[in-house]
C-alpha cells in the first residue's frame, strides 16, 4: 500500500462525497468529472492502462459531456445552501446495513497484490500463457477479442441497444 494509492483513494472518496452533497447539479457534475479523472489515475497505478484510457475518455470525457449537455438543456436549482446534509434515516439504515455487511467481508479478501490469491490462478494464468499464441502482446486485448469475444459481442449489442433506446426515448424512432 503506497502513500500514492492512499492519497488517490482519499481524493476519490472525497470528491465522491462532494458529488453526493452538492445541491447545485453543475457543481456535482464537475466534481464527478474530477472523480473520474482520479479513478483513471488510480487505474494506471493499479497497472490497468487500458481501463485508465477508457475511463479518461469515456468516464471523464463522454459522460461528463453528456451531463453538461443535459444540464444546458434543462434547469438547475439555484439559491439555498450549496450542500445538502439531510439524509433520510431509512436510507442511512439500508445503505449502512449493506455497507457494514460488505465491510465485514473485507478481512477475508486476499490482501491487495497478493500473488497467491485464487484470482491469479485459473483463467487468468491460462490467458497470460496463451496470449502469445494469438500473436497479441497485450493480454487485455487478447482476452477482449479472443478468449471472451462473446462478451465483447454483447458489449457491442449493449451500445447498439443504448443508441436505439435513446432514439426511441427522444421520439425519433418513428420511421
Amino acid at each position: 500500500m503506497t502513500p500514492l494509492v492512499a492519497a488517490l483513494l482519499a481524493f476519490v472518496v472525497a470528491v465522491a462525497v462532494v458529488t453526493a452533497l452538492a445541491r447545485d447539479v453543475l457543481v456535482a457534475t464537475v466534481a464527478f468529472a474530477a472523480y473520474s479523472l482520479g479513478l483513471a489515475v488510480l487505474w494506471v497505478v493499479f497497472d490497468a492502462p487500458d481501463v485508465a484510457l477508457t475511463e479518461a475518455a469515456v468516464g471523464a470525457g463522454v459522460v461528463t459531456a453528456l451531463f453538461v449537455a443535459v444540464l444546458s438543456r434543462t434547469t438547475r436549482p439555484v439559491g439555498g445552501r450549496s450542500f445538502s446534509l439531510s439524509v433520510s434515516p431509512t436510507v442511512v439504515i439500508v445503505v449502512g446495513a449493506l455497507t457494514a455487511a460488505l465491510v465485514a467481508t473485507v478481512p477475508s479478501l486476499p490482501a491487495v497484490g497478493d500473488p497467491d490469491a485464487p484470482a491469479f490462478d485459473g483463467a487468468a494464468a491460462y490467458y497470460l500463457q496463451e496470449t502469445g499464441a494469438y500473436g497479441i502482446d497485450n493480454a487485455v486485448t487478447a482476452v477482449l477479442v479472443v478468449f471472451r469475444g462473446f462478451d465483447t459481442f454483447g458489449e457491442i449489442a449493449v451500445v447498439f441497444t443504448a443508441v436505439v433506446a435513446v432514439l426511441v426515448v427522444r421520439g425519433r424512432g418513428d420511421a
Binding site: 493499479f46 497497472d47 490497468a48 487500458d50 481501463v51 477508457t54 475511463e55 469515456v58 468516464g59 484470482a119 491469479f120 483463467a123 487468468a124 490467458y127 497470460l128 493480454a139 487485455v140 487478447a142 482476452v143 477482449l144 471472451r148 462478451d151 465483447t152 454483447g154 458489449e155 449493449v158 451500445v159
Partner: peptide
C-alpha cells in the same frame, strides 16, 4: 503481470 481478466470485465462494464 496484473490480472488481465478483471480489467477486461471492467472495460466492458464501463461501456
Amino acid at each position: 503481470y496484473a490480472n488481465p481478466l478483471p480489467q477486461v470485465l471492467i472495460l466492458t462494464a464501463i461501456v
